[in-house]
Write a protein that binds this DNA or RNA. Structure first.
Lengths: 208, 208
DNA sequence: GTCTATAGGACGATAGAC
DNA sequence: GTCTATCGTCCTATAGAC
């Protein structure tokens, strides 16, 4: 799995090294999942030894959790950029009603546009989402919460456009995930944003 | 992972033993994926030793392929039962145009009804589908073909109900997969068949 | 058809030097 | 902050007895 990587031969500041490890780990997990992840592989790609990596995150499971937390922050940031809203209007953690004052359809479109630019990240979440169905997976709770929060936020926003908001929310999430799955396998055969726009027209126009 | 299982202390006929191993392996993969699958775990649950299992399938990858082939046959059988058609009308391998003379909407509904009765199998495919995105996965080609064939078959059948059959086919597959994902995580909170019927009304009625 | 025995690694993690 | 050295466990797969 791991190719040959030379050692860096340099001591990086902890924060910088952590960031490097997190990004490389995300790429490896996107390929192999968490069960298929090897600390040796991560260490090689970072130009470190295994204990060198472990020092920063304590354990393999700790590393996974740190990757997910890091992605949450980065994803919130990039989504705000795509929507053109400030951090005050849309904090990293959405409140119960979802991001206040954002139109659901715009939010979905911005999300899909953003995702279309980062297939590796989409794949990271697709792989972990399936793997974490088993309760013994270290990201099981994370993805249980994630699904619950997404459904709650989308349902709250859907109240503006339909009288069956939860049904619409489920359909939107299902369609977004399903189209992304097809796109991940054959990116050249699927125009993710265009397919979503067509589907969104169907879902939203039927609701109103 | 593996609990305590006593040895069978009996020599089963090869065909029977193969079937037992295939079913147990399917359950383990549904939990842990292929990378997380341990031959020791399978052997314990079968009441065998590891070489005892390997004799029947040669290698871990061979076992996975055998599981998928076995599922294809079983799934075709159960789908025919749900649709009430004969093996002559709908062979295990669909022809290019999809199963001849079957209504697309009925086919989808029968599929979802069947899937709602076997969450472990749905989960098996969900986990392997994500894991096999990487080309080095032994089931990579299997799932690439599976997606291609499903799209081709659904597109062919969709020609009867819309003038944009591929778009509809993609949306149907996306919605079915997406709803199943949500159902897998919280089966008690999602009525899979009912959610699909609602979504199908939307997708098919907009198309005609 | 199933076993024991074993080869030959890879794994995650810890201890302690620098 | 990173290393070397090492522990103990798990892994797939093969050889050969019964």
């Amino acid at each position: 799995m791991a190719a040959s990587y030379r050692r860096d031969q340099q001591r990086l500041p902890a924060a910088e090294r952590r960031r490097q490890i997190l990004e490389i780990t995300a790429a490896v997990i996107a390929e192999c999942g968490f069960w298929g992840l090897s600390m040796q592989d991560v260490a090689d790609r970072c130009g470190l030894t295994v204990p060198g990596v472990l020092r920063h995150f304590g354990s393999k499971a700790g590393l996974l959790i740190a990757v997910l937390a890091h992605r949450d922050v980065e994803d919130a940031r990039s989504l705000r950029a795509h929507l053109g809203v400030s951090e005050a209007e849309m904090p990293d953690e959405w409140s119960e009603g979802g991001p206040a004052g954002v139109d659901l359809r715009q939010l979905c479109l911005a999300t899909m546009r953003r995702n279309a630019t980062q297939p590796e990240i989409v794949r990271l979440f697709a792989v972990l989402k399936a793997e974490s169905l088993t309760p013994s997976h270290p990201a099981h709770d994370y993805f249980a919460n994630r699904q619950h929060n997404a459904l709650a936020a989308f349902t709250a926003l859907a109240r503006d456009v339909t009288d069956r908001p939860e049904t619409l929310a489920r359909q939107i999430i299902a369609m977004m995930d399903g189209l992304q799955d097809q796109w991940l396998r054959t990116p050249e055969a699927v125009d993710l944003v265009h397919e979503w726009e067509t589907a969104a027209a169907l879902l939203f126009d039927a609701a109103t």
